[in-house]
């Protein structure tokens, strides 16, 4: 039986491994050593970090926008109906805003407003059980989806809000087109809607959620529209949810 590798030997192998050049038996020996050596595992991590930084010296090339679009379309498709949705657990977490500049145009916003009932639940009897510092708002479906309703719970301390909605149907895919998505918008008093996230169906079914990383006190309205795969830079599709965000 071959003698176990010592840390000096491992360091040499780690250097080769970090640039992907280690071969065969040497790789196996190193893996056995790493399994029992905390110090060398730390060195491996530092090597990996150092190597990854080498790319900082390359001339950066911006990827084409279609790459992000195609990627997110696939991800959201799987989140809605594929394996991603099955794996997905309930989440309360930060959500990065979707970057984009927008031109505001929510078709039929005025007509839809009549179908919107948004209540500030704080200091009302209908308020759900939330942490004392959180504020909850009620969001209702529009005429397009009158059975939909939900709650937007805002944590001012972290500028995070979670939108939970029930009653929205799944958006079907066809043989030639991927399913659309529910995109959430925060709309200021003046200016373009800000894309704030996507509603994702929870594994248990029936409930859709989105976490919005924004100070919603800066906005007057929250809304959701049906958009093509990967979302749109500005709302273009049917509005299905809306709610007024009262100033506090």
């Amino acid at each position: 039986m071959a003698e176990a590798m010592n840390c000096f030997e491992a360091e040499g192998h780690l250097a080769l491994a970090s640039v992907g050049a280690l071969e065969g038996a040497d790789r196996s020996d190193l893996e056995r050593h790493l399994a029992t050596c905390h110090a060398c595992r730390g060195l491996a991590a530092r090597n990996a970090d150092a190597v990854s930084l080498l790319f900082g010296a390359l001339d950066p090339v911006a990827p084409p926008p279609r790459l992000r679009r195609n990627l997110m379309a696939q991800v959201y498709a799987e989140a809605v109906g594929g394996p991603g949705a099955v794996r997905r657990s309930r989440w309360r977490h930060f959500l990065d805003r979707i970057p984009a500049s927008r031109a505001l145009s929510i078709a039929g916003a005025g007509a839809l407003a009549a179908a919107v009932a948004l209540l500030v639940w704080e200091n009302t009897g209908g308020r759900p059980a939330v942490a004392p510092h959180e504020v909850s708002y009620r969001v209702m479906g529009t005429t397009a989806d009158p059975s939909a309703s939900g709650t937007l719970t805002f944590d001012p301390a972290q500028s995070i809000a979670e939108l939970t909605v029930r009653g929205l149907p799944q958006l079907p895919a066809t043989a030639t087109a991927a399913p659309h998505v529910y995109e959430v918008w925060l709309i200021p008093g003046a200016g373009a809607p800000m894309p704030a996230g996507f509603l994702t169906l929870q594994p248990s079914g029936g409930t859709w959620t989105a976490v919005l990383s924004a100070d919603i006190r800066k906005y007057q309205t929250v809304a959701a529209t049906i958009e093509p795969y990967g979302g749109s830079p500005g709302p273009t599709g049917t509005q299905v949810l809306s709610g007024q965000l009262g100033s506090r």
Binding site: V61, R88, L95, D96, T200, V211
Partner: peptide, 21 residues
């Protein structure tokens, strides 16, 4: 948590780097 937003954020932060690589 297998959140789509995680991939979105990861791409927005490191997508250009990944593409350059």
């Amino acid at each position: 948590r297998s959140s789509p937003e995680g991939i979105e954020a990861l791409y927005d932060r490191y997508g250009p780097l990944a593409y350059t690589v």
